[in-house]
């Protein structure tokens, strides 16, 4: 079993394909047959499994999340900025956790599927992604 943390420096509303980084940890773990649990530690970072080739689709998702959850000043939570509260809600929609099957030492994903980190929050943040391979 391996538990490790990856760090990514992100920019606001940018998406990052982290499949290779997580796959590297699977290889480091030596696990051939098992499960890989990936969790974003921060509450403004989403994790998804979209098409890794469809960068325009990533932008479509971001656009739709902004349309559905607009930045506004009357959120019930007033202890953070409207932008941060909207980011948290968008993250809650997308989710920030994924359990992926490992088979023959490889993450089992569709041919075009990738593990995507979506930064909904602030610019220039160091984001932590916890990974457990067992």
């Amino acid at each position: 079993m391996l538990i490790d943390t990856l760090t990514f420096k992100t920019e606001y509303e940018r998406c990052y394909d982290i499949t290779a980084d997580v796959q590297a940890l699977v290889e480091k773990s030596g696990v051939k047959d098992g499960v890989c649990v990936v969790t974003a530690r921060d509450y403004c970072v989403g994790l998804g499994l979209p098409s890794k080739y469809d960068k325009k689709g990533w932008l479509d998702t971001a656009d739709d999340m902004h349309r559905l959850i607009a930045d506004r000043v009357d959120f019930k939570n007033q202890s953070c900025s409207p932008y941060e509260e909207a980011a948290k809600l968008r993250t809650a929609f997308m989710g920030n956790h994924s359990d992926i099957i490992v088979r023959d030492g490889v993450l089992v994903l569709g041919n075009s599927q990738g593990l995507l980190l979506h930064e909904f929050g602030k610019d220039g943040a160091d984001r932590l992604i916890d990974v457990c391979v067992m």
Binding site: L49, K56, G57, D64, M94, D99
Partner: peptide, 25 residues
């Protein structure tokens, strides 16, 4: 109006998958 240009249902489908999710434990 999606940037991803295939069919409208395909484009919307990609967004729905990103939000609803593609795995379950």
């Amino acid at each position: 109006f999606y940037r991803h240009v295939e069919t409208p249902f395909d484009a919307a489908g990609h967004v729905k998958t990103a939000i609803v999710g593609a795995n379950l434990s």
